[in-house]
Write a protein that binds this DNA or RNA. Sequence first.
DNA 1: AGAGAATTGTG
DNA 2: ACAATTCTC
Length: 522
Amino acid sequence: MSNRTTTAVAPAASATLPTDTGHPARAVSPRTPPGTDAPVSIVWLRNDLRLADNPALRAGVEAAGSSGSTLVVYVLEEAVAPHDHAELHDSAAPRPLGAAARWWLHHSLAALASDLRAVGGELVLRRGTAVEVIPALADEVNASAVFWNRRYTNARNADSTIKKQLTAAGLRAESFHANLLNEPWTVQTGGGTPFRVFTPYWRACLARPEPREPLPGPTSIRAASAPGDALNDWALLPTDPDWSGGLRETWTPGERGAHERLAAFMGDGLAAYHRRDEPAAGGASMLSPHLRFGEISPFTVWEAVRSARRAGLDGQSAHNTATFLSEVGWREFHASILFSLPTLRERNVRPEFDGFPWGEPHPAELAAWREGRTGIPLVDAGMRELWHTGTMHNRVRMVVASFLVKNLLIDWRVGETWFWDTLVDADEASNPGNWQWVAGSGVDAAPYFRVFNPELQATKFDPRGEYVRRWVPEYGTAEYPAALVDLRTTRANALAAYQAMRAAAGVSEDMPGETGNHPRVR
DNA sequence: AGAGAATTGTG
DNA sequence: ACAATTCTC
């Protein structure tokens, strides 16, 4: 392979992104005349809304060859009927997107369509259940092959059904490894079971062969076409009211925006990443929603770090790259957890938590939490940042989650649902995985007795109050509400409730989370 | 990837 | 007296 140093530091995309190629849209005759034998390949994009490092897209273009054409489709997947919890386990539908993610999806699809047009391609939009839509589309355009990049949620059940159907009908159906550095079944303990603790999991990942280099995107696509929905008709954007102003100020969805974020982070962010715990410092990479929608691949992120290391880093930055990559590792860890525990969103991983006395959430307290008026400055700052921007600093996420689950004794699933609706990076694995981590009910979870004190956290990580002042400008005036609850007494109550739960469940005196004391998973 | 109390270390 | 370390929840 040639030296990719420059392409990774100045984003790999700049060399391969279609918008930079100068190809006029439809430079190549895009239509395949009906009735010809020229092969049509379908590329079904899901959470991989990118051209660069997209093995399925690459395979589709290659399979079409010089005489055939490629149809790129995105399906807005919807369950046929509302399902109850009993059905969830077997469900093959992706979790319906929250409102912030719908906003992101709209703009990401618009960017993708534009990027595809720039190389002669076209994005076809369809809506419905994938097991119905994809085989019907293949039939409709007389496709000879269908390609996609694998996903690792319950929706993979739909994918395997579709693959069987297509193969039985004589089509080539092929899926690719593209969206995780390590597919869940490839990283296992010595005993052949999935890891349940992050540190050994990540150590095992690092001991594996280096992740591959990213693939270049296609420079030219002969588009096959088919009727499709208009993006606007999906009504993914909020109206009446349009609350997305803060999201627009904060984000640029799409592949180009993703690569710009990566370049900015590799340029300035990495040297300051050791200050990432300070929410006012702006030290986060801000890549999570781009990774969530697959606008950039983890291989491209990995390559950027690899080439920065090759170019030489000072000791601090070298240390920071390891920390940053381990955050990418957490994304993979949660994906592998969800792979083996499909009920992660619904069920406590540790069954003794089923006996925890979560009450009906007090409506006023829950509303105060959601709206950022609990009277606890750091909590309110975080919740307002979330509402305004669709994201929240990682440390503050832990603080607001701890406050909801422990100080307010509200079920983690209530908080998880709110984050699912409001976060642009809401991920089917990471969101419930991290909520269970905070609640103490998950794998490798924080011990329940770890109760964050929002005041101490603010003193430690926002010592000058910059973050709080940014989001809670009225703090210190009479307008700011009194604290919703007393932190000391609610902390004591939480610890007591935990003790009661443990006693009721007959849990041994070992600390939760210690090796060798992992409850059997249901 | 805690907090807070208890204990030890230091001048 | 006060900081650093250790222990418990």
